[in-house]
């Protein structure tokens, strides 16, 4: 039996305690990922709290977070492990007239191994949350590498043998869906799509993230954001933007979100000029001068 969460309700409560307000689906899926010891693939638009979910799980369970940020051109040496060949060279030079066999045995030991996030997560004895961020940015080859790690939680190093996890980490993969992941990776994961929250939950999130925000402004803000998401925009505002907006309003000491203040601060939530114009038109704000 794993020690992550006892039940979906427990997951929800403990995530809530760390400041992450999870909806029912998120809490249930997080519980299942822990109970079944399967990686969790989280997909959704930017800024809805995908990465934050992994951090919240780590905080809620008192685990350490190991993060692998993916990018184009990420390879085995950066993701898994690498031999510290400069140090190995030094060791060989320092060996003097030592026999080659001994030196050889010496330089392929733990001391010369540089562990990268995947190997680090597997070798840790304490509870670990492994976050593989933006996995869709990597090349297809890295996915193949992930397969072995994700299904058996083991890594094969030719010189050292196979390293198996003594304690399976809680794995979270996040993706923006810019590329279809391969079926093989998806099959091994539980899938969770995070979307924009309903207005009730969003209001809770904003007020919990931004202390000092009055209920009235929070309600108005969430309403405007919900309205903006219904428009055909290039980039709909996400939770991160709502929170930023709330912080802006606090900084500017705006106590009432009227048309004038919406118009003045719209730049915080909308990042395209055409989106700006559309919103101004649809919300019938006075045209910006």
């Amino acid at each position: 039996m794993s020690s992550w969460f006892a039940s979906p309700a427990d997951a929800s409560a403990r995530l809530h305690a760390t400041g992450y307000l999870a909806d029912e689906a998120t809490a249930t899926t997080a519980y299942l990922a822990g109970a079944l010891e399967k990686p969790l693939l989280v997909e959704g638009p930017a800024g809805v709290g995908k990465t934050e979910l992994a951090k919240a799980v780590a905080r809620a369970c008192g685990a350490e977070l190991v993060r692998l940020q993916c990018y184009e051109g990420l390879d085995e040496a950066r993701a898994l492990y690498e031999w510290n060949y400069k140090k190995q060279l030094l060791r060989i030079q320092a060996a003097g007239d030592q026999a080659w066999d001994e030196t050889h045995d010496d330089i392929f030991t733990d001391e010369f191994l540089l562990t990268r996030p995947l190997l680090t997560a597997i070798r840790r004895e304490e509870p670990t949350v492994l976050l593989v961020d933006e996995v869709d940015k990597t090349d297809v080859e890295v996915e193949g590498l992930l397969l072995e790690v994700l299904s058996d939680f083991q890594v094969t190093i030719p010189e050292l043998g196979t390293v198996s996890a003594t304690r399976r980490p809680f794995v979270v993969l996040t993706s923006n869906a810019t590329r279809e992941l391969s079926e093989a990776v998806k099959r091994r994961c539980l899938f969770l799509h995070l979307d924009y929250p309903d207005s009730e939950r969003e209001r809770e999130i904003v007020t919990s993230q931004v202390p000092g925000l009055s209920d009235k402004v929070a309600t108005q803000l969430v309403e405007v954001v919900a309205r903006l998401r219904e428009l055909e925009l290039k980039k709909a505002p996400s939770i991160a933007e709502s929170v930023d907006w709330a912080r802006t309003l606090i900084a500017l000491e705006i106590g009432d979100l009227d048309e004038e203040s919406v118009r003045r601060t719209l730049g915080v939530v909308l990042k395209h000029s055409s989106d700006h114009q559309r919103a101004t038109k649809e919300l019938r704000l006075a045209a910006a001068r």
Binding site: T28, T29, L32, A35, E43, E183, R187, L190, F191, H193
Partner: peptide, 22 residues
């Protein structure tokens, strides 16, 4: 693990395990 007593939870469990594309 989660039982059958709540329909939405059952739905979530099925969705997490069988639907891999939004």
């Amino acid at each position: 693990r989660i039982g059958w007593h709540e329909r939405e939870v059952v739905r979530t469990a099925y969705a997490a395990t069988t639907v891999k594309k939004q």
